[in-house]
Computed example of a mutant assay.
Amino acid sequence: MTILVTGATGNIGRKVVDQLLARGATDVRALTNNPGKAALPAGVEVAEGYLGRLDSLPPAFAGVDRMYLAPAPGNVSEVLALAREAGVRHVVDLSGEPESWWGSVCTAVEGSGLAWTHLWPADFMENTLMWAPQIRETGSVREPRPESASAPIAMIDIAAVAATALLSDGHLGRAYSLGGPEVLSRTALVGHLATALGRDITFIESSRDETIEALRSAMGDRAIWYVDNVLTDFDPDPESLPITSVADITGRPATTFAEWATDNAALFTAD
């Protein structure tokens, strides 16, 4: 049973490869646009290509039974048509609820005729790295809604869920809302980072435009999209957020933000 991981050198795809190997998978194929720089583990079959180049996909799909699908909203229907033609049976996609900005992915997957498992993650813990430049330069974080809350999830936990779903038929037809183990406000996240870095970090409530300007050095023009689309989506009612999904699916505790911050503290101090 060959499992294809698309986006295999991306932030989550690379971790999916590792999680599959950790669970004993022996027939893993990794799709990457630059095999020479991929540095994938021994025993992983490397296929050159990427989802944006459709003519590279048929060789990568050949003999594949299951596939992790990185988000490709621009041409997802065409990708899935090629996968189905090649005999792919089950797709585990990273997407979002139908009404979300990644919703077109899960809608296309369901319409493809392939068996599916949707992964709908909450805010990534790694997104706090966008604060790193202003923490280094000013010792502060600027955002408009200090008490807005989410259940942020570590990418390694998303990858663990993906690997679990790829290795079992018990997750077919399931859509999993994935959250971390705690509901945390934006100020609580900053507090955990301050502890991990061993320094004071001030949260400064700011306007939309001030927030965008503070994030530009880390995100460029994507700061506008992030502030207008992501920050506004944090649930004002934390009681409604899923916080046990990773443990429920994988049987292992999810990463706490305090653990993640401690493990990644160096990323906030390095230029």
Rank of each mutant, 00 (worst) to 15 (best):
4 L>G: 04
8 A>H: 11
10 G>C: 07
10 G>T: 11
11 N>M: 14
11 N>Q: 15
12 I>N: 14
12 I>Y: 13
13 G>C: 05
16 V>I: 06
16 V>K: 03
23 R>F: 01
26 T>L: 14
30 A>W: 03
32 T>Y: 05
34 N>H: 11
34 N>C: 09
34 N>P: 13
38 A>Y: 11
38 A>I: 03
40 L>F: 12
42 A>H: 04
49 G>S: 11
49 G>I: 12
55 D>V: 13
55 D>R: 13
60 A>I: 05
62 A>Y: 03
63 G>N: 04
68 Y>K: 04
71 P>W: 07
72 A>W: 05
76 V>L: 08
77 S>K: 14
81 A>E: 15
81 A>T: 14
87 G>E: 05
87 G>I: 03
89 R>F: 00
90 H>G: 10
91 V>L: 07
97 E>Q: 03
100 S>E: 12
104 S>C: 12
105 V>H: 09
107 T>Q: 06
109 V>E: 09
109 V>N: 04
110 E>V: 07
114 L>E: 13
116 W>Q: 08
117 T>R: 08
133 P>W: 12
136 R>M: 09
137 E>C: 02
137 E>P: 14
138 T>R: 00
147 E>C: 09
147 E>F: 12
149 A>N: 08
149 A>D: 10
149 A>G: 02
151 A>P: 01
153 I>D: 14
153 I>N: 14
155 M>R: 10
162 A>D: 12
163 A>L: 04
166 L>M: 02
170 G>C: 01
171 H>T: 03
172 L>V: 08
172 L>Q: 07
174 R>D: 03
176 Y>W: 01
179 G>S: 00
179 G>K: 00
181 P>W: 01
183 V>E: 14
186 R>A: 07
186 R>P: 00
187 T>P: 11
189 L>V: 10
189 L>N: 06
192 H>S: 12
198 G>W: 05
200 D>V: 04
204 I>W: 04
217 S>I: 10
219 M>K: 01
221 D>T: 12
221 D>Y: 08
224 I>E: 15
226 Y>E: 13
226 Y>F: 08
227 V>K: 05
229 N>I: 02
243 I>R: 00
246 V>S: 00
253 P>E: 09
254 A>M: 01
254 A>P: 01
256 T>P: 12
263 D>T: 10
266 A>H: 13
